[in-house]
Design a binder for these strands. Structure first.
Lengths: 343, 343
DNA sequence: GTGAAAGCGCTAACAC
DNA sequence: GTGTTAGCGCTTTCAC
């Protein structure tokens, strides 16, 4: 009850009749200490219910034993799944995870520029964020390992590793699938390609979309591109515009599953049957895709998080490691929202 | 580039021609230091780009400046939304958020018993977890403020505040709604009411369900209760069982929206039309409910997180504060999955 | 108003 | 093998 004075390493040392240094050794590299002493110390540790003060360890070691993860909108299913991968692996390590959510562009710069300098972390994990050159510069100054999960491909100075997906290729392959089905009038519903968070995935997927069209000698029509805020509702609006076109698309490629849901809703509103009147394909393969039977391109969200942590921990152990730029595969999951165009 | 030796308070002191103590004062309670000195110091701080070492501060202050949040399965939409509330408010404070996800019962005890003692946090936020008596005891020993978000109602010694929802009342009101529609054969699809995580919400909602039935003089039928693992797929199985009953329910109350989705799927499989052949109601009002047009009981997920943090921060500031047990309201959101029974 | 000095709890280098 | 000592970088008495 009485929040008894915490038991420190000195208390243990006293009770075990040894010095604090020995207790410390016993708790860490037990090899260097006599078997008996070790056992005795451990018994006292048990009895006193001693647990080392992490903050003191941190100061002494010059390490924070924490990694910072910077993540925008972690409630988005795809992001939360990546985060889940991060957490799952990090939990098995000695590192704490301190999380920084970003919901506004200002927070973005704060996180990217301050956190690395506050010694709040030994390493940084950045999810779905592409640092600007200036930010990368600053990151480099901080001198701590940074790994980008779902970040940009460019070789940034401050970045140690990257785990990413080739969104251009993914967008291209997905579009090609629609083309192979026979579609030539393919709309694209995505984020604003120029946005204050510097999200790049939608833009990259659109680049892939263009490539597929070029390769197939299908003209890229400006009116078939709808940029908007991210989210289901904005995507619904965008899709409405597309469907109101006199020469409306027979298929719509949404930059994410969330956006595909909005497209599906717009189709229903417009009285169109999916996939007969309109094919819809999403991206990510989060749970809603399975629920709705949405054809989509699956990416390994959970694994991207895990892999990112793996690389970070590796670098933390052994700072000299080579930079690695991993690219995770994607896979088309065909469900019930795609079919050849009618007629 | 060269990860220059970090600039410490001593460097600043030297450059400003004052003592480290004064720099410290200047950075914290600027009131006690001469205007000019203060300005001079701040200028040097700027120039040198000095930012205090948080770990050292922590050790010195005897505070970790972090709060730990213990949360099971944070990828579940309802949980992630609560967490979102937590993060949103905590981001405006000086406290870091270190997150501990629980995906297995063992992790549960580890988190509940170790974290409070490692001085990894000045306070604990526990989401959707009900400590056992033993755990509460231990929490109390640690002597740090603990607030339960969506935790149990009982007055636990180690717990300072609670932000919760009256699940019994919510379950009762929801069931009453179905009864008022004319249903008497109402199935319940929930979690295992006895589970290693000690999740209580499904159980409590079922208690409310029973009450509503009693009040309406409708017998509670054992075969109308289906307990299972949490999740959409298990819920689908459970619903299958219910729908295979010779005297099958005309309405099903699912303990969460996720589970309601499973019920909806089972209904479709069985060739039943919702809501004509079967009414379905969920709980939480997460996005999927809106997407599918699911009738559900809304609870204030985001707000529960925010409120929990508010209480914790308050206690951290002023340890003497009264315990508060907040109960957040719920609200029935009627959509398209409920109707009077046929015939 | 400011400097000097002690100490937060631990680790690690150095003796023995 | 183990004790002793000196910090890690900051805050905070206590003098002046």
């Amino acid at each position: 009850m009485a929040p008894d004075k915490r038991v420190t390493i000195r208390d243990v040392a006293l009770a075990a009749g040894v010095s604090p240094g020995t207790v410390s050794r016993a708790m860490n590299d037990s090899s260097l200490v006599n078997e008996d002493t070790h056992r005795r110390i451990m018994r006292v540790v048990e009895e006193l219910d001693y647990t080392p003060n992490v903050v003191a360890r941190r100061l002494s070691l010059g390490k924070t034993l924490a990694v910072g993860v910077i993540v925008p909108f972690f409630t988005r299913p795809s992001v939360s799944e990546r985060l889940n991968g991060v957490v799952s692996l990090l939990a098995t390590s000695q590192y704490d995870l301190v999380i920084h959510n970003i919901e506004a562009p200002e927070q973005r710069v704060t996180c990217l520029t301050e956190i690395p300098f506050n010694e709040q972390a030994d390493g940084i994990l950045s999810i779905s964020l592409t640092p600007t050159d200036a930010e990368a510069e600053r990151l480099a100054q901080a001198g701590l390992p940074v790994v980008l999960i779902d970040g940009d491909h460019r070789a940034l100075k401050g970045v140690h590793h990257q785990v990413t997906v080739d969104d251009v290729a993914g967008g291209e392959a997905t579009t090609r699938y629609l083309i192979e089905l026979g579609h030539t009038k393919i709309g694209f519903v995505g984020d604003y390609h120029d946005n204050p968070f510097n999200f790049t995935s939608s833009r990259d997927r659109y680049v892939g979309y263009q490539r597929a069209l070029w390769e197939a000698d299908i003209p890229v029509r400006a009116e078939y591109l709808e940029e908007n805020q991210h989210g289901r509702r904005p995507a619904r609006e965008s899709a409405r515009n597309l469907l109101a076109l006199t020469d409306r698309p027979t298929a719509i490629f949404a930059a994410s599953d969330t956006q595909a849901v909005g497209v599906l809703e717009a189709a229903r509103e417009a009285g169109l049957t999916v996939p007969d009147d309109l094919s819809v394909v999403g991206y990510d393969d989060v749970e809603i895709a399975d629920i709705l039977g949405l054809t989509t391109r699956r990416q390994l969200l959970f694994e991207s998080g895990r892999r990112g942590v793996e690389l970070l921990l590796q670098t933390l152990e052994n700072p000299g490691t080579e930079r690695v730029f991993d690219t995770l595969p994607t896979e088309l999951i065909v469900r019930e929202t795609t079919a050849p165009p009618q007629g």
